[in-house]
Amino acid sequence: MDYAVVVIIEVLYAISVLALISAGLAVIFGMMRVINLAHGEFLVLGSYAAIFSNRYGVPIYLAILVAAPLAGAVWGFIVERLIVRWLYGRLINTMLATWGLSLAMMGAFVMIFGNTQTGISAPIAGFTVGAYQINGYNLFIIAMAIVVMAGLYAVMKGTRAGLVARAAMQRPDMAQAFGYNTSQVYMWTFVAGSALAGLAGGILTPIFGAIPSGGANYIAKAFITVITGGASVVSGTLASASILGLVYQIFTFLSTSVVGEIALLIAAVVLLRILPTGITGRFLRNRV
């Protein structure tokens, strides 16, 4: 019984981590068909923002939940204006340019922070279930994943901004004809996605810490989750994060976490072979 609780929490945790690190990328890809390959470095940036603002006296929750997304948003704004906006509609070129950005940011992190791992300790203590120890912060991550996903859904379905954003993505010409500046909409969508990336980086800092090369780990998983999910932002991400997170955690329990990661990657490839346009390309169409 205790073991079952532990397993369930671990599975939920794996799914939540995937959902969190993919959310920002999913917004940018799902809405704008732009793949930001520097997404992983945006998360690392969020981590550094959280760590250093905390070190200079910002309370830890403020550092994680405010400073980190703020850093992501500001940097996303700069990147969109300088690089991404010239490349809309050229998917491959955006991927290449943002890959370059990813390398450059990684190099910059090494030059600024040095090639070492830094971190902050988790603000929530662990507790025990029967004979097992559970990391209390994992529950916080699960809660935050739910909040982020629900928030995304609410914004896109329920607010005027979400409506305009979706309209601008589906029919840019029509949105423009109704007087909305699509270039601005794109910009703010990219900023929102970047803020989500920073937030995810901040939330995950107490678990993974911050290391200059850490982005590569994030981007692979996020990229895979988003592509496997397909074009629908919330439902696609949730569906693929659930499947891939489940596969990962099962194989991690059976063997080691490396086997789990390999199983996750293979599962993604198999899924794409069966559903070439992602899960929401076939199921749950036209959902948010």
Binding site: N93, A97, W99, G100, S102, G107, A108, V110
Partner: peptide, 20 residues
Amino acid sequence: GLNNFFIMGIVLIAAVLFLP
């Protein structure tokens, strides 16, 4: 003096933007 990845990354961005 400069990180290798940093330079490669800048080169790639510049190539995509200015010399496609």
